[in-house]
Design a protein around this nucleic acid. Sequence first.
DNA 1: TCTTAAATATGATTTTTATCATAAAATATC
DNA 2: GATATTTTATGATAAAAATCATATTTAAGA
Lengths: 143, 143
Amino acid sequence: MFSNTAKYAIKACLFLAVNSSEVNKLVIKDIAEPINVPSAYIAKILQALSKKDIISSTRGPKGGFYLTKNQFQTNVMQIIEAVDGEERLNSCLLSLEKCNSDNPCSLHHLVYEEKHKINERLKRTTLEDLRQHIMRGESILPL
Amino acid sequence: MFSNTAKYAIKACLFLAVNSSEVNKLVIKDIAEPINVPSAYIAKILQALSKKDIISSTRGPKGGFYLTKNQFQTNVMQIIEAVDGEERLNSCLLSLEKCNSDNPCSLHHLVYEEKHKINERLKRTTLEDLRQHIMRGESILPL
DNA sequence: TCTTAAATATGATTTTTATCATAAAATATC
DNA sequence: GATATTTTATGATAAAAATCATATTTAAGA
Ligand code: FES
Ligand code: FES
């Protein structure tokens, strides 16, 4: 469903949401290890997220990655789109084109409604929401 | 969501369901062109499907691909799994492991129910069902 | 201002997926 | 049985995704 890159990006953001703050920045290694992603790879992903302003960073000693108040309100869909691009989630199940309800392919009606629901939820759910779920023990941050 | 290979496989099967029969076999070129897939590529996919007994074939003159009565009852999930393997549809959204309701990841509850519904429908829907939808004009077979 | 610790930019390598190409095997028909 | 037509087996190439590596830039602190 998502690319590895998107999975890693979400995990990293979530890890930041749970473990970092403006006064407690995290360095690449401290992110890569606990979420179990090769550090050179997550470094590249974090750079991309930072450039798109989904996470924040400062370099030099005492630097690292963190989220600002605003960035806790980023929703999951934004993270996915930042790394995977928009088409992936909206492409038709049969063709290589965009899904199109006016010209529904043979599988369209089997999945459209549910897919739409999922997408809406991904858009509505913020890092802050997910952080709270984790704090309450309702879900885990997988390795 | 699905690989190109899976998309092509479904389109090809569907095309066979609509246009072929045991007495009206279709040759690779007659499948590749209308569904707009490179013919050397669809050839390989058809070979795999044939080996897994999802479609039938005979070689030599008057040969080609077709579906038997039974094969009209193949469901969409079977086609996908035949080419993509099983993991792809059942992997967790965040980890590289299987989705696991006992140890739900942070996105699990956002999508599980809908994903499950979609999977059930893919399992319940046969080529014959889809053929009928197409015949009734309820859906199209995209290029 | 020098050193050191960090991100950033950039690009190389590996693996997977997609695509292309072709010789070999099978079968109908003459 | 020879020929032509088809799938099948096999592998080569190309493109994309994943992963690894490193020199450069920035900023803190001594
Ligand atoms: S048109 Fe194919 S999934 Fe919507
Ligand atoms: S555990 Fe991650 S999607 Fe179910």
